[in-house]
Amino acid sequence: MEVISGRVHAAFPMGDATRVGEARRHAAMLADECGFDETQAGRLAIVVTELGNNLRRHAREGRLLVSARPGRRVVEIIAVDRGPGIADIERSLGDGFSTGGTPGTGLGAVRRLSQAFDIHSSVPQGTIVLARLGADDTAAPDDGRPCAGAVSLAAPGETVCGDAWVVALDGDQATLLVADGLGHGPDAAEAAEAAVAVFGADPLASPRQLIERVHARLRSTRGAAVMVLRADDAAGTVRSAGAGNVIGRIVSGVDDRTVLGQHGTAGITIRSPEETTHAWPAHALVVVCTDGIETRWKAELLRPVLQSDPAIVAALILRDHCRGRDDATVAVLRRPH
């Protein structure tokens, strides 16, 4: 079993060249934290530079999202923009292609240097590029088991995020917890991280048990909205329990089901937790969002990315439906191909 704790993404709007350098320095700090050697850190610097410059030269409202998973010794870079989009992705990945008078090696170089790479683009909505680099092979895609990805951003003006997420991968099963501490700032972050700590102590407990334990632990905090889901690939089911306004959805090419928790706030007041069970159809994504994300996004948004890396899916929802005034987190589980 592997437990992966999510880290907030630092966001760098690519308004000018100085922001590229700022993102590169932040990525270098994360690389050191993850134990990258000099060669690996150099590759990461190139990836950040290429993606940042692409956004600065070609995109509208482009920004780099930078995060790390220290336990996996992985740094993740996501480039997000709002247009103009790429009409021919394969051509854009070839060396020599350029629309801006540059050598045209940007996206091709990023793909070669990254252990995990994915891209989604639509015209004129925009492009999302994912590059994941690691100190070993843990940045490579997982095969044969569910995989997870997320994007988490702090509220504007805050230096810490009051949301948190964690996932446990165990064979055919994936258990995901997403917590949204009340309000935002350090006190909200304390509550969300306390929920993650409870999960880490026994990730194999049932969703109902985990919600009960989180509720008890969070009594000394300001409380949080929490959802726990256990997705079972072999059984084709998703079991869930939750409290508050963290909302899940199971989205496929033909179906869209909402997964709700009960009313209340973990750590303050909840009824006895109840579990619900939903079908997990083939090719369906499990998506969990905190209330920093609009609730009425259309399932059609995800149809082109059902087979994409979950982090691409999360970034797409966040780009198009972030409220922009609170902490915001989107976490996604995908069944094995």
Results as ranks from 00 to 15, higher is better:
residue 1 M to W: 13
residue 2 E to I: 14
residue 3 V to Q: 05
residue 9 H to C: 10
residue 14 M to R: 04
residue 14 M to A: 06
residue 18 T to S: 13
residue 19 R to Q: 14
residue 23 A to D: 00
residue 24 R to L: 00
residue 27 A to G: 03
residue 29 M to T: 15
residue 35 G to A: 10
residue 35 G to M: 06
residue 38 E to M: 11
residue 44 L to A: 09
residue 45 A to L: 06
residue 49 T to W: 02
residue 50 E to T: 14
residue 50 E to W: 09
residue 51 L to I: 02
residue 56 R to E: 06
residue 58 H to K: 13
residue 64 L to E: 00
residue 64 L to K: 00
residue 67 S to G: 06
residue 70 P to E: 03
residue 73 R to A: 03
residue 77 I to H: 01
residue 80 V to Y: 00
residue 81 D to N: 07
residue 82 R to T: 12
residue 84 P to F: 13
residue 87 A to H: 11
residue 90 E to A: 13
residue 90 E to M: 05
residue 96 G to Y: 05
residue 102 T to K: 14
residue 106 G to C: 04
residue 106 G to V: 08
residue 111 R to H: 02
residue 112 R to N: 12
residue 115 Q to D: 12
residue 121 S to M: 03
residue 121 S to R: 02
residue 125 Q to V: 12
residue 127 T to R: 00
residue 132 R to S: 09
residue 132 R to Q: 13
residue 140 A to H: 09
residue 141 P to R: 06
residue 145 R to E: 12
residue 145 R to Y: 08
residue 145 R to I: 10
residue 146 P to R: 07
residue 150 A to W: 02
residue 154 A to T: 04
residue 166 V to F: 01
residue 168 A to I: 07
residue 169 L to A: 04
residue 178 V to S: 07
residue 178 V to I: 14
residue 182 L to W: 04
residue 188 A to H: 02
residue 189 A to R: 01
residue 190 E to H: 12
residue 193 E to G: 08
residue 193 E to C: 09
residue 193 E to I: 10
residue 197 A to C: 09
residue 199 F to N: 04
residue 204 L to I: 15
residue 204 L to Y: 09
residue 206 S to L: 09
residue 206 S to R: 02
residue 208 R to L: 04
residue 212 E to G: 07
residue 213 R to F: 06
residue 213 R to N: 12
residue 218 L to E: 01
residue 219 R to I: 14
residue 219 R to F: 15
residue 230 R to H: 05
residue 232 D to A: 11
residue 232 D to I: 02
residue 233 D to K: 13
residue 233 D to V: 14
residue 235 A to W: 03
residue 236 G to N: 04
residue 237 T to W: 11
residue 238 V to Y: 07
residue 244 G to T: 13
residue 244 G to C: 12
residue 249 R to P: 03
residue 253 G to P: 02
residue 254 V to E: 13
residue 256 D to L: 13
residue 257 R to P: 09
residue 258 T to M: 13
residue 259 V to W: 05
residue 260 L to H: 12
residue 260 L to K: 15
residue 268 I to S: 12
residue 270 I to H: 05
residue 273 P to V: 08
residue 275 E to F: 07
residue 279 A to V: 10
residue 280 W to H: 04
residue 282 A to S: 11
residue 282 A to Y: 08
residue 286 V to C: 04
residue 287 V to D: 03
residue 293 I to P: 07
residue 294 E to Q: 15
residue 295 T to S: 11
residue 298 K to P: 15
residue 303 R to T: 14
residue 312 I to H: 10
residue 318 L to D: 01
residue 319 R to E: 05
residue 325 R to M: 15
residue 328 A to E: 02
residue 330 V to G: 01
residue 331 A to G: 02
residue 333 L to W: 00
